[in-house]
Amino acid sequence: MNNLFHSTLGKKYIMALTGAGLFGFVVMHMLGNLQVFLGQEAINRYAHFLQSSKELLWSARIGLLVMVGLHVWSAVKLSAENKAARPVGYLNNPTPAAASYASRTMLMSGLIIAAFIVYHLLHFTVKVEAVNLVGLDFGKLHEQDLTGRLRADVYRMIILGFKVPVVSVFYMIAVGLLCLHLSHGISAMFQSLGLRNKAWWPVLQQSAKGAALVLFLGYIAVPVAVLLGLLKE
């Protein structure tokens, strides 16, 4: 098992498996987000449900953090090795044959996404007032549920947060990059795990692109709706 962390193939498995896990999270997260369209009650109830068990919440958070950590670690490590394997390039930096833009920019897109995640966590999870550019402490947004208990008002937080155009645009760019990353990553994941064959590969590649597109639309739907005024406080 030593090979898992030391061989190139082992590191690719780590990359693929953590990528698969994170992809699952991204799908769930989008489905959660879209509940904003069901109204204040629905999304706030869902958010409260997620936060209700500290044990589960922190297990999930630690799990995600470990996955992100391993994903980034293997990416950086492999990229450094890859750089060392090709110290001198070709004249005028020709584009490698057949390599898609997404496949050539995985590290870049990945690192920008990582930076965005930090901001995103400060923005909506840690709720640091300084980064939301609204001038309001999102931590103090509360409302009462049907039984009268106080809970976080995620609905208003989303709308207030995305009303700031700069924030929305940054979010949409980041999500765009995430989906570019996934358009290659999802199919590559199957390849790295050895789950590919002639018959399925074209389907896989198209599905990966399709999934990336669906995710993109799903994610930007919220800020777009806010900016267009379709979602209001």
Binding site: K11, A97, A98, S187, S192, G194, K198
Partner: peptide, 26 residues
Amino acid sequence: GSCTVTGSCEAVCPKEITLDNISRMN
């Protein structure tokens, strides 16, 4: 280096060896 599944190798291979082999080896 390692494989990032760009497919350049397959595109230039004079004997048209495919990426399926890489998957099989993985």
